[in-house]
Amino acid sequence: MRKFKSLARPYFVWMLTLVALPLVVMVVLSFMKTNGVKFEGAYVTLENFTRLASPSVLVGFYNSMKFALIATVLSFLIGYPIAYIISKSNIRNKFLVLAAIILPMWSNKLLRVVAIGYALSEYNVLRSFMNTIGIDFMINLKGTDLAIVIGLVSSYLPFMILPIYTVLEKIDPLLLEASKDLGANGFWTFWKVVFPISLKGVATGVIMVFLPSATGFAVPYVLGNGNYVLIGTVIEDSFKIGMDYNFGSLLSLILIVVIFGALFLVSKVDKEGETLL
C-alpha cells in the first residue's frame, strides 16, 4: 500500500496554499497601508500596531475573553456530567442519545441564535403558544450579558459533550475493576482513574467551545442587539465595512497566534487528533 503515499502529496500543496500563504499575505498587509489587496500607492507603516491600543479593540478583546471563558466553564460543568451519565447509562442504543445531542446542530446555526433571541424576548411565539394552554412566563433577557452566555452555551455545548463522551466510552472497564480491587471507592476511582484519562477529551472540548465563542460575531450581534463590541465584530467591520484589510489582518494574526498556541497544547495531549470528532 505504500505506493499510495502520493495521494497525500497534493493535499500538502492545497493546504499550504490555503493555510500558509494567507499567513504570509497577512503578515505583509499588517505592516502596510494598502487599498484592499491593491498595492498601488501602498506604503510600509506601523500605524496598525498603534491602533491596537484603541478602546474598541481593548473592549473587544476583554468582552471576547469574558464571554468565552464563562461559556466554556459553564459548558464544561454541564457537559462533563452529561457525557458521564450517557457513558454510564445502560441504554442499549447509545447512538440515539448521541443523535439527540447532535440533532440541534442540523438546524441552521444563525437561525438557532435568532430563535433563542425570540425565546428570550418579552413577546414570542413560545410564550404565546404556552398561553393558549394556560401557562404564562415572562423572560426578558435579550440584549443582556446573560442572553449572550445562554446563546453561546446552547450553540456549543455539543462540542463539549461529544469529545468527553468519546474518551469516557473508550476507558477499559478492567481499569475500573482494578482500582476497585485495590481499595478505591467510587469517588477515588473517578478522581484518580477516570478523570485523568478523560482530560484529553476535556482539552478538545474546551478548545472547541472556547475558540468559536471567543471569535464568533453572530451570537453577540443577534443576542446583544448589536450593542456589544467583540474581537470578531472588530475584524468583521474592518474587512466588510471599513475595507481596512491591514488592521483586520493584524487582528487575525493575533488570533492565529493564540489559536496555534492552543492547537500546540492539544497536540501535546492528543497526538493523532483522535478526540477531535
Partner: peptide
Amino acid sequence: AEIVTGMSLMLI
C-alpha cells in the same frame, strides 16, 4: 477560528 479561515480564503 471561522473568521480567520474565512478571511484567509478571501485574501487568496
